[in-house]
Amino acid sequence: MILCAGESLIDMVPEGASYRPMPGGAVYNTAIALGRMGAPSGYLWPISRDGFGEMLLPPLTGAGVDISLCPRSDRLTTLAFVTLTGGEARYAFYDEGSAGRMLRPEDLPEIPETVTALFIGGISLVPDPCGAAIEALVARCRPRMPVMIDPNIRPFFIADEAAYRARLERLLGMADLVKLSGDDLEWLAPGASTDEAAAAILGKGPRVIFQTGGARGARAHWSGETLAASAVSVKVADTIGAGDTFNAGVLAALARQGALTRAGIGQLTAGTILDALTLGTRAAAITVSRPGADPPWAHELTALPA
Protein backbone atom coordinates (compact mmCIF):
# COMPACT_ATOMS: atom_id res chain seq x y z
CA MET A 1 0.00 0.00 0.00
CA ILE A 2 1.21 3.50 -0.88
CA LEU A 3 0.67 5.80 2.11
CA CYS A 4 0.00 9.47 1.33
CA ALA A 5 0.68 11.72 4.33
CA GLY A 6 -0.19 15.40 4.09
CA GLU A 7 -2.85 18.03 3.80
CA SER A 8 -6.52 17.76 3.05
CA LEU A 9 -8.62 20.91 2.77
CA ILE A 10 -11.62 22.45 1.11
CA ASP A 11 -11.00 24.31 -2.15
CA MET A 12 -13.42 27.22 -2.39
CA VAL A 13 -13.73 27.34 -6.18
CA PRO A 14 -15.23 30.41 -7.93
CA GLU A 15 -18.70 29.83 -9.32
CA GLY A 16 -20.20 33.03 -10.65
CA ALA A 17 -20.29 35.58 -7.85
CA SER A 18 -19.90 32.92 -5.13
CA TYR A 19 -17.73 29.93 -4.23
CA ARG A 20 -18.37 26.20 -4.39
CA PRO A 21 -16.68 24.06 -1.68
CA MET A 22 -14.79 21.09 -3.14
CA PRO A 23 -12.65 18.55 -1.26
CA GLY A 24 -8.97 18.97 -2.09
CA GLY A 25 -5.41 19.29 -0.89
CA ALA A 26 -2.30 18.17 -2.76
CA VAL A 27 -1.62 14.96 -0.85
CA TYR A 28 -5.31 14.15 -0.41
CA ASN A 29 -5.80 14.44 -4.17
CA THR A 30 -2.91 12.09 -4.84
CA ALA A 31 -4.33 9.47 -2.45
CA ILE A 32 -7.71 9.58 -4.21
CA ALA A 33 -6.11 9.46 -7.66
CA LEU A 34 -4.11 6.39 -6.66
CA GLY A 35 -7.23 4.67 -5.39
CA ARG A 36 -9.18 5.49 -8.54
CA MET A 37 -6.37 4.09 -10.68
CA GLY A 38 -6.56 0.82 -8.78
CA ALA A 39 -3.34 1.19 -6.78
CA PRO A 40 -3.70 0.21 -3.11
CA SER A 41 -3.41 3.47 -1.19
CA GLY A 42 -3.81 4.82 2.31
CA TYR A 43 -4.11 8.28 3.78
CA LEU A 44 -2.69 9.79 6.96
CA TRP A 45 -3.86 13.22 8.14
CA PRO A 46 -6.18 14.52 10.86
CA ILE A 47 -9.75 14.99 9.62
CA SER A 48 -11.96 17.56 11.35
CA ARG A 49 -15.35 16.63 12.76
CA ASP A 50 -16.80 19.84 11.28
CA GLY A 51 -19.04 19.86 8.22
CA PHE A 52 -16.14 20.37 5.85
CA GLY A 53 -14.30 17.44 7.40
CA GLU A 54 -17.33 15.25 6.72
CA MET A 55 -17.10 16.32 3.05
CA LEU A 56 -13.52 15.03 2.86
CA LEU A 57 -14.31 11.43 3.78
CA PRO A 58 -16.63 10.13 0.99
CA PRO A 59 -14.17 10.75 -1.89
CA LEU A 60 -11.50 8.81 0.00
CA THR A 61 -13.68 5.82 0.85
CA GLY A 62 -15.32 5.93 -2.58
CA ALA A 63 -11.90 5.49 -4.18
CA GLY A 64 -11.05 2.63 -1.85
CA VAL A 65 -8.43 4.59 0.10
CA ASP A 66 -7.59 3.15 3.55
CA ILE A 67 -8.30 5.89 6.13
CA SER A 68 -7.65 3.80 9.25
CA LEU A 69 -4.61 5.95 10.11
CA CYS A 70 -6.60 9.24 10.02
CA PRO A 71 -7.35 10.65 13.48
CA ARG A 72 -10.48 12.80 13.92
CA SER A 73 -10.12 16.30 15.38
CA ASP A 74 -12.35 18.98 16.86
CA ARG A 75 -10.21 21.66 15.18
CA LEU A 76 -11.41 23.29 11.96
CA THR A 77 -10.72 22.21 8.38
CA THR A 78 -8.25 24.23 6.30
CA LEU A 79 -9.88 26.35 3.57
CA ALA A 80 -8.19 27.39 0.31
CA PHE A 81 -9.89 30.14 -1.69
CA VAL A 82 -9.07 29.65 -5.36
CA THR A 83 -8.55 32.39 -7.95
CA LEU A 84 -8.50 31.26 -11.59
CA THR A 85 -6.55 33.29 -14.13
CA GLY A 86 -6.61 31.81 -17.61
CA GLY A 87 -7.40 28.42 -16.11
CA GLU A 88 -4.36 28.61 -13.78
CA ALA A 89 -5.20 28.26 -10.10
CA ARG A 90 -3.87 30.53 -7.35
CA TYR A 91 -4.70 30.03 -3.67
CA ALA A 92 -5.26 31.92 -0.41
CA PHE A 93 -5.11 29.57 2.59
CA TYR A 94 -6.99 29.83 5.89
CA ASP A 95 -5.04 27.39 8.02
CA GLU A 96 -4.11 28.80 11.43
CA GLY A 97 -4.79 26.26 14.19
CA SER A 98 -6.49 23.84 11.79
CA ALA A 99 -6.91 20.10 12.33
CA GLY A 100 -4.02 19.17 10.08
CA ARG A 101 -1.64 21.97 10.94
CA MET A 102 -1.59 20.96 14.61
CA LEU A 103 -0.44 17.38 13.93
CA ARG A 104 2.61 16.76 16.14
CA PRO A 105 5.40 14.18 15.76
CA GLU A 106 4.20 12.43 18.92
CA ASP A 107 0.74 12.04 17.35
CA LEU A 108 2.03 9.84 14.54
CA PRO A 109 0.65 6.28 14.57
CA GLU A 110 2.65 3.13 14.06
CA ILE A 111 2.99 2.47 10.36
CA PRO A 112 1.86 -1.09 9.51
CA GLU A 113 3.93 -3.51 7.46
CA THR A 114 1.31 -3.32 4.71
CA VAL A 115 2.67 0.15 3.83
CA THR A 116 5.34 -0.26 1.15
CA ALA A 117 5.91 3.33 -0.06
CA LEU A 118 5.40 6.85 1.28
CA PHE A 119 4.28 10.00 -0.54
CA ILE A 120 4.52 13.46 1.07
CA GLY A 121 4.34 17.07 -0.05
CA GLY A 122 2.35 20.27 -0.30
CA ILE A 123 1.78 22.94 2.31
CA SER A 124 1.90 20.32 5.09
CA LEU A 125 5.71 20.55 4.88
CA VAL A 126 5.81 24.26 5.71
CA PRO A 127 4.46 25.15 9.18
CA ASP A 128 5.05 23.46 12.51
CA PRO A 129 4.11 21.29 14.18
CA CYS A 130 2.78 19.38 11.15
CA GLY A 131 5.93 19.96 9.08
CA ALA A 132 8.04 18.45 11.85
CA ALA A 133 5.61 15.52 12.06
CA ILE A 134 5.97 14.74 8.34
CA GLU A 135 9.75 15.02 8.57
CA ALA A 136 9.75 12.59 11.51
CA LEU A 137 7.55 10.20 9.54
CA VAL A 138 9.96 10.21 6.59
CA ALA A 139 12.95 9.55 8.86
CA ARG A 140 11.09 6.62 10.40
CA CYS A 141 9.89 5.06 7.14
CA ARG A 142 12.71 5.57 4.63
CA PRO A 143 14.94 2.67 5.80
CA ARG A 144 12.31 0.16 4.67
CA MET A 145 10.43 1.88 1.85
CA PRO A 146 10.90 4.40 -1.00
CA VAL A 147 9.78 7.98 -0.43
CA MET A 148 8.40 10.42 -3.01
CA ILE A 149 8.07 14.14 -2.35
CA ASP A 150 6.31 16.93 -4.23
CA PRO A 151 6.91 20.16 -2.29
CA ASN A 152 4.44 22.04 -4.54
CA ILE A 153 6.02 25.26 -3.32
CA ARG A 154 3.67 28.16 -2.50
CA PRO A 155 5.98 31.12 -1.68
CA PHE A 156 3.16 33.25 -0.24
CA PHE A 157 2.46 30.52 2.35
CA ILE A 158 6.04 30.46 3.67
CA ALA A 159 6.49 32.67 6.74
CA ASP A 160 10.06 31.56 7.55
CA GLU A 161 11.88 30.95 4.27
CA ALA A 162 15.19 29.97 5.88
CA ALA A 163 13.54 27.31 8.04
CA TYR A 164 11.56 25.94 5.11
CA ARG A 165 14.61 25.79 2.85
CA ALA A 166 16.46 23.91 5.58
CA ARG A 167 13.60 21.43 5.95
CA LEU A 168 13.42 20.86 2.19
CA GLU A 169 17.18 20.30 2.13
CA ARG A 170 16.77 17.53 4.70
CA LEU A 171 13.72 16.01 3.02
CA LEU A 172 15.24 16.04 -0.46
CA GLY A 173 18.21 14.18 1.00
CA MET A 174 15.88 11.47 2.31
CA ALA A 175 13.68 11.18 -0.81
CA ASP A 176 14.06 8.69 -3.65
CA LEU A 177 11.65 10.37 -6.08
CA VAL A 178 11.03 14.11 -6.40
CA LYS A 179 8.37 15.90 -8.45
CA LEU A 180 9.00 19.57 -9.24
CA SER A 181 7.43 22.12 -11.53
CA GLY A 182 9.47 24.70 -13.39
CA ASP A 183 8.43 27.27 -10.78
CA ASP A 184 9.61 24.94 -8.00
CA LEU A 185 13.03 24.56 -9.63
CA GLU A 186 13.35 28.32 -10.08
CA TRP A 187 12.51 28.90 -6.40
CA LEU A 188 14.96 26.23 -5.24
CA ALA A 189 17.81 27.39 -7.51
CA PRO A 190 17.22 30.98 -8.69
CA GLY A 191 19.07 31.82 -11.87
CA ALA A 192 20.16 28.25 -12.60
CA SER A 193 19.06 26.43 -15.73
CA THR A 194 16.58 23.60 -15.33
CA ASP A 195 19.27 21.00 -15.97
CA GLU A 196 21.66 22.64 -13.49
CA ALA A 197 18.99 22.83 -10.80
CA ALA A 198 17.95 19.20 -11.36
CA ALA A 199 21.57 18.00 -11.28
CA ALA A 200 22.14 19.80 -7.98
CA ILE A 201 19.10 18.14 -6.42
CA LEU A 202 20.06 14.71 -7.75
CA GLY A 203 23.38 15.24 -6.02
CA LYS A 204 21.58 15.28 -2.68
CA GLY A 205 20.48 11.67 -3.09
CA PRO A 206 17.20 11.25 -5.04
CA ARG A 207 17.10 8.69 -7.84
CA VAL A 208 14.74 10.58 -10.17
CA ILE A 209 13.41 14.09 -10.50
CA PHE A 210 10.13 14.32 -12.40
CA GLN A 211 9.70 17.80 -13.87
CA THR A 212 6.24 18.85 -15.04
CA GLY A 213 5.62 21.55 -17.60
CA GLY A 214 1.89 21.65 -18.30
CA ALA A 215 1.27 21.69 -22.05
CA ARG A 216 4.98 21.05 -22.59
CA GLY A 217 4.68 17.60 -21.06
CA ALA A 218 7.04 16.18 -18.45
CA ARG A 219 10.67 15.18 -18.15
CA ALA A 220 12.64 12.87 -15.89
CA HIS A 221 16.17 13.67 -14.76
CA TRP A 222 18.16 10.71 -13.46
CA SER A 223 21.56 9.05 -13.84
CA GLY A 224 20.91 8.35 -17.53
CA GLU A 225 19.80 10.52 -20.42
CA THR A 226 16.91 12.89 -19.66
CA LEU A 227 13.58 11.34 -20.63
CA ALA A 228 10.47 13.14 -21.89
CA ALA A 229 6.75 12.46 -22.33
CA SER A 230 4.50 14.74 -24.39
CA ALA A 231 1.35 16.22 -22.91
CA VAL A 232 -2.01 14.90 -24.10
CA SER A 233 -3.94 17.60 -25.95
CA VAL A 234 -7.23 18.40 -24.17
CA LYS A 235 -9.48 21.41 -23.62
CA VAL A 236 -8.41 22.74 -20.23
CA ALA A 237 -11.11 23.52 -17.66
CA ASP A 238 -8.60 24.40 -14.92
CA THR A 239 -5.34 23.06 -13.51
CA ILE A 240 -6.56 22.21 -10.01
CA GLY A 241 -5.14 18.82 -9.00
CA ALA A 242 -3.11 18.30 -12.18
CA GLY A 243 0.26 17.85 -10.50
CA ASP A 244 -1.29 15.72 -7.76
CA THR A 245 -2.77 13.39 -10.36
CA PHE A 246 0.56 13.25 -12.19
CA ASN A 247 2.19 12.08 -8.96
CA ALA A 248 -0.36 9.30 -8.60
CA GLY A 249 0.23 8.19 -12.19
CA VAL A 250 3.97 7.98 -11.56
CA LEU A 251 3.54 6.01 -8.36
CA ALA A 252 0.89 3.70 -9.82
CA ALA A 253 3.08 2.90 -12.83
CA LEU A 254 6.13 2.17 -10.70
CA ALA A 255 4.08 -0.01 -8.34
CA ARG A 256 2.58 -1.91 -11.27
CA GLN A 257 6.07 -2.70 -12.54
CA GLY A 258 7.33 -3.85 -9.13
CA ALA A 259 9.76 -0.92 -8.92
CA LEU A 260 8.23 0.79 -5.89
CA THR A 261 10.25 -1.09 -3.27
CA ARG A 262 13.46 -0.27 -1.44
CA ALA A 263 15.34 -2.71 -3.72
CA GLY A 264 13.45 -1.85 -6.90
CA ILE A 265 13.97 1.89 -6.62
CA GLY A 266 17.71 1.33 -6.88
CA GLN A 267 17.37 -0.57 -10.16
CA LEU A 268 15.19 1.76 -12.21
CA THR A 269 15.52 1.59 -15.99
CA ALA A 270 14.79 4.15 -18.69
CA GLY A 271 11.76 2.12 -19.78
CA THR A 272 10.31 1.96 -16.29
CA ILE A 273 10.75 5.70 -15.75
CA LEU A 274 9.30 6.54 -19.17
CA ASP A 275 6.21 4.42 -18.43
CA ALA A 276 5.76 6.37 -15.19
CA LEU A 277 6.12 9.70 -17.01
CA THR A 278 3.60 8.62 -19.62
CA LEU A 279 0.93 7.46 -17.17
CA GLY A 280 1.44 10.62 -15.11
CA THR A 281 0.87 12.93 -18.11
CA ARG A 282 -2.13 10.93 -19.36
CA ALA A 283 -3.79 10.97 -15.96
CA ALA A 284 -3.15 14.69 -15.48
CA ALA A 285 -4.69 15.44 -18.89
CA ILE A 286 -8.02 14.01 -17.76
CA THR A 287 -7.95 16.01 -14.53
CA VAL A 288 -7.35 19.34 -16.27
CA SER A 289 -10.16 18.62 -18.73
CA ARG A 290 -12.80 18.97 -16.00
CA PRO A 291 -13.38 21.45 -13.17
CA GLY A 292 -11.67 21.00 -9.83
CA ALA A 293 -9.51 18.14 -8.56
CA ASP A 294 -11.37 15.25 -10.17
CA PRO A 295 -8.78 12.58 -11.05
CA PRO A 296 -9.54 9.77 -13.48
CA TRP A 297 -10.65 6.23 -12.82
CA ALA A 298 -8.72 3.32 -14.33
CA HIS A 299 -11.28 2.75 -17.11
CA GLU A 300 -11.00 6.38 -18.20
CA LEU A 301 -7.25 6.03 -18.68
CA THR A 302 -7.81 2.95 -20.80
CA ALA A 303 -10.29 4.84 -22.98
CA LEU A 304 -8.02 7.89 -23.47
CA PRO A 305 -6.55 7.97 -27.00
CA ALA A 306 -2.80 7.42 -27.19
Rank of each mutant, 00 (worst) to 15 (best):
P206H: 08
V208Y: 09
V236T: 12
Q267D: 12
A17I: 05
P109R: 05
W45E: 08
L79Q: 11
L274P: 00
L125Q: 03
Q211L: 14
P14L: 10
D176V: 00
Y164N: 05
M22R: 11
V65I: 08
E54D: 15
A63T: 02
T30F: 03
R142T: 13
A162L: 14
W222F: 12
G64T: 02
A285G: 09
I10L: 13
G217T: 08
G213P: 09
N29G: 11
R144W: 11
A231R: 06
C70V: 04
E54Y: 02
G51A: 15
F157A: 14
L188I: 11
P112G: 08
T61A: 13
L108G: 10
L227D: 04
A136M: 05
N247M: 08
A163V: 04
Y19T: 04
E186T: 08
S98I: 07
F157I: 02
P46V: 10
P40F: 01
T78R: 06
V288M: 08
T245A: 08
E161I: 03
G214W: 05
I149Y: 01
V126W: 08
D95T: 08
R207F: 11
I67R: 00
G87E: 14
P112R: 02
E106L: 09
T85K: 15
S181A: 13
T77L: 11
V65N: 10
A303K: 03
A228K: 05
T278C: 06
G122S: 15
M148F: 13
A31E: 09
D195P: 01
P155F: 07
F93H: 05
A228T: 09
L202G: 14
I149Q: 04
M37Y: 02
S193N: 07
F156V: 11
P305S: 07
A303R: 05
V115I: 15
E135H: 03
L125N: 01
I10T: 07
G25H: 01
T272H: 06
S181D: 10
